[in-house]
């Protein structure tokens, strides 16, 4: 990926639901960095029209809280995949990419950043202590990678970061 690539960071989650706000918190921090060529979009959840926004970029980084998986965060590549759920309340990154490809004829490269959270089960606008630490680690690692628009490289690096011991998804992504 070259420095000219247009990157979209789709950061989602509910900031009123404790650690589910990790995605929006990452998005807010990324916006403050004001990185050239990077568009940051924050929303509650992914929906179908995100496919059109995604299609207008070369690279999309989906940022969400993670209930399970490696700590403090994991990163994996996302490939288009069709699926049908039972509710309109949310779509998956794979679905967004597949829809982008179907509607526009091309899909951007996709990556998913899952930041581990621990408390999701009540209302509250504060992240847990562990989530705050994980968010900081994710930002510290990801911002330089985003800055050079090289998320493919970041996959390889993430797999070598001790604190980000690869979960299954990370290992898979590193292979991809």
């Amino acid at each position: 990926m070259t420095g000219a690539a247009r990157m979209l960071a789709l950061c989602y989650g509910n900031p009123g639901r404790l650690d589910d706000g990790l995605g929006p918190a990452f998005g807010a921090a990324l916006e403050r960095e004001n990185l050239a060529g990077v568009t940051v979009d924050v929303d509650y959840q992914l929906t179908v029209e995100d496919a059109m926004t995604a299609a207008a970029h070369d690279v999309v980084l989906f940022v969400d809280a993670a209930i399970t998986g490696a700590e403090p965060f994991f990163l994996h590549q996302v490939t288009p995949r069709a699926s049908l759920g039972f509710s309109s309340h949310g779509a998956e990154p794979e679905q967004i990419l597949a829809l982008a490809a179907e509607l526009t004829g091309s899909a951007p490269q996709g990556y998913a950043l899952g930041i581990r959270g621990y408390e999701f089960d009540e209302f509250g606008e504060l992240l847990s202590t562990g989530a705050v630490e994980n968010l900081a680690a994710a930002l510290q690692f990801m911002v330089p990678m985003i800055l050079c628009h090289d998320l493919r490289h970041s996959l390889r690096v993430a797999a070598m970061v001790p604190g980000c011991r690869p979960g299954r998804q990370t290992a898979q992504a590193a292979e991809g």
Binding site: G16, L46, I67, G85, F86, S87, H89, G90
Partner: peptide, 24 residues
């Protein structure tokens, strides 16, 4: 079963959609 539930389109109030969560 999903078709029946989809007809109502239940609102997953204050839904959290963190990775690792299975929808159904």
């Amino acid at each position: 079963i999903e078709v029946a539930i989809r007809a109502y389109d239940p609102c997953l109030s204050c839904a959290t959609h963190a990775m690792g969560q299975m929808p159904l």
